[in-house]
Each structure stands twice: as C-alpha cells, then as structure tokens.
C-alpha cells in the first residue's frame, strides 16, 4: 500500500527524465487513448441506463403499490346505483383509506389516446372506474372481491399487483445489467491497457536492459511506463466521458407523454457520477501497467 501511495505521488508530480527514457510511441498511444475513450463513453451509458432503471423501479413500486381500481360494468341505467353500492362497500372495508369514482372528464382523458378527444361517453357502454388508495397495512383483496361479487355483481377489483410485479422485477434486472456492463467495461480497460503495456515493454527491451545496466531500479523503469499508460487512460476516458455526457444531455427529456419512460438522462447530483470514470480508468491502468511491468522486469537480469 505504501508503495502504491508513493508511486501515485510520483505519478502526479511526474519525473520528466523518467518519462523521457522510454521512447515516444505513436500508434500504441493513440489506440490506448481511443480504447479508453470508447469504454468510458459506453460506461456513461451503462450508468445512465442503470440509474434510469432504478428510478423506474422505484416509481412503479411506490406509486402503484398503494392504489387499486374497481371497474363497474353494468347496463347504463344501473351503473350509477352500482357505483354508489360499491363505494358504500369500500367505505366499510378495513384498510381502504380513500375511494372515489372518476368523473366524466377524467374518464374521457383516459380514453382520449385511443378514441380521440371528441368522444361522447354517453354513446358507449364505458365502465365506471373507482380509484381507491389503501392504507399502509393494505386490505384483504380476496374478501373484498367476494363482497363485491355478492352485492355489486358488475364491480371487479383490479389491484395492479399482477402486472406491476414483473415490471418492477424487469426494471431491477435492467439496473443490474447496467452495473454488470460497467464492471465489464472496467475489466476491458484493464485488459487493453495490460496488452498495450506488455507490447510497449517488449518493444523497449533494449531500453530496459540499458537502464538496468546503468543501475536503474525496477521501480524507476516501471514508473516511466505506468505514468505514460495511466495518463493515456485518464485522457482517453475524459474525452469519452465528456462526449457521452453531452450526448446524454441532448437526449429528449422525460415528459408526461413518455409515460412509463423516465428518460435516460441523469437527474440532479447523478450528473457528478460520470466524472468518477476517468480517475477510475486511470487507477485501473495504473494497476494493470504496474502488474505487467513488474512481471516483465522480474524476468530480466
């Protein structure tokens, strides 16, 4: 740990000479920077997806858990009476905090996306909807169904849980997938940097043997490579993250019309999270190059 801390300090302060002993390399450098940028770009989207999926799961969980709907389907002349009867039952049902029948305007708004705004509800046998909010401890759905069936034959209880549960689960899985993707991207950065560092170490075998001959320690030699690759990973990741954040920022925002989609964009303090990717990328490169360098140098005299 001490070694890592010392190396980190050196890394940041920098040693111009140590940096110069390794000849500059054109193509490898650009490829490493490009790979880091691409990985960081993708990581930002994986992160955005995870956070959006998390919000979605939380919203569906919270909002829908407490509400249920009762549909009253009856001939037009009985519908008002049956609605009153159902409301009467709900008032006496333990665990129901609040119940009210939707008025005509609300029902029309619900149907508007399918039938258009000019719909005359009177002309259609539309069921009356009753919205109910349950108390925290919930109510006995099976009991309520039996009572409704006995007293208001046209009323059906829909407690949302049937379609809500798989959606919440799917959102949770989506979030998990997002984080796994982010982890895999980090591992890919490590793999790419390791390969590039090994190639660089192999290509500079003569440089390393000269340095050993004149008394350079392994740490001095490794430093030159570690610093180079860490800075490349950091630079590349910074470019990738900035591009991705701009791309996320200009995504169409969440709106009422989008309904279930909350939008992929970051919200509030979540905008800070992608900024952790470049330092993390540099750390991964630092460790990967360190391991590769120590392994290669250990084999030399």
């Amino acid at each position: 740990m001490t070694v890592v801390r010392l190396d980190l300090r050196h890394l940041i302060s920098g040693d111009r000479q140590a940096n110069r002993v390794v000849p500059p390399s054109g193509v490898t450098a650009h490829l490493t920077i490009f790979a880091a940028a691409a990985m960081a770009f993708l990581a930002v989207f994986a992160m955005a997806m995870s956070l959006a999926a998390g919000r979605l799961a939380a919203r569906w969980g919270d909002e829908l858990a407490q509400s249920s709907t009762i549909r009253v389907v009856a001939p037009a002349d009985q519908i008002a009476a049956q609605t009153q009867a159902a409301l009467g039952i709900l008032e006496t049902t333990a665990g129901v905090a609040f119940a009210r029948a939707l008025d005509e305007a609300e029902q029309r708004a619900l149907l508007a996306p399918w039938f258009g705004a000019e719909l005359d509800l009177q002309a259609l046998p539309v069921p009356q909807l009753i919205e109910m909010i349950e108390e925290d401890e919930g109510f006995d759905a099976a009991g309520l169904r039996l009572r409704l069936a006995a007293e208001v034959p046209g009323a059906f209880l829909d407690d949302h849980s049937r379609w809500r549960a798989p959606l919440v689960e799917a959102a949770g899985r989506l979030r998990l997938l997002g984080w796994i993707s982010a982890l895999l991207l980090g591992a890919s950065v490590a793999a790419i940097v390791t390969l590039a560092a090994r190639a660089a170490l192999a290509a500079n075998a003569q440089v390393i043997s000269v340095l050993r001959l004149v008394g350079a320690t392994d740490r001095y030699i490794a430093q030159a490579f570690i610093r180079r690759f860490s800075l490349r990973a950091f630079g590349g990741a910074t470019i990738g993250v900035l591009c991705a954040m701009i791309a996320v920022a200009i995504l169409p925002g969440a709106s009422e019309a989008a309904g279930l989609l909350t939008g992929l964009s970051f919200q509030g303090w979540h905008w800070v999270l992608p900024l952790f990717i470049p330092p993390l990328c540099a750390l991964v490169a630092f460790l990967a190059t360190g391991v590769a360098a120590r392994r290669t140098l250990g084999k030399l005299t």
Partner: peptide, 30 residues
C-alpha cells in the same frame, strides 16, 4: 551497478536521447 562501471563490446544506448543525455543517464536513474 552504480558502483561498478561496465563497458560492453557492442555497447547499447537509448537511441532517442543525445550522447550527453546517455552519458548522464546513470546520474538520472539514481
């Protein structure tokens, strides 16, 4: 190695650094 100077028949240098920098290399690495 800093106390033993070694000269090879086919001596190798860091080809991207000048002669002066190569000669000063032992000072830099130590």
């Amino acid at each position: 190695r800093r106390r033993v100077g070694v000269v090879h028949q086919d001596c190798q240098f860091l080809d991207h650094l000048s002669v002066a920098e190569n000669i000063a290399l032992p000072l830099d690495v130590s």
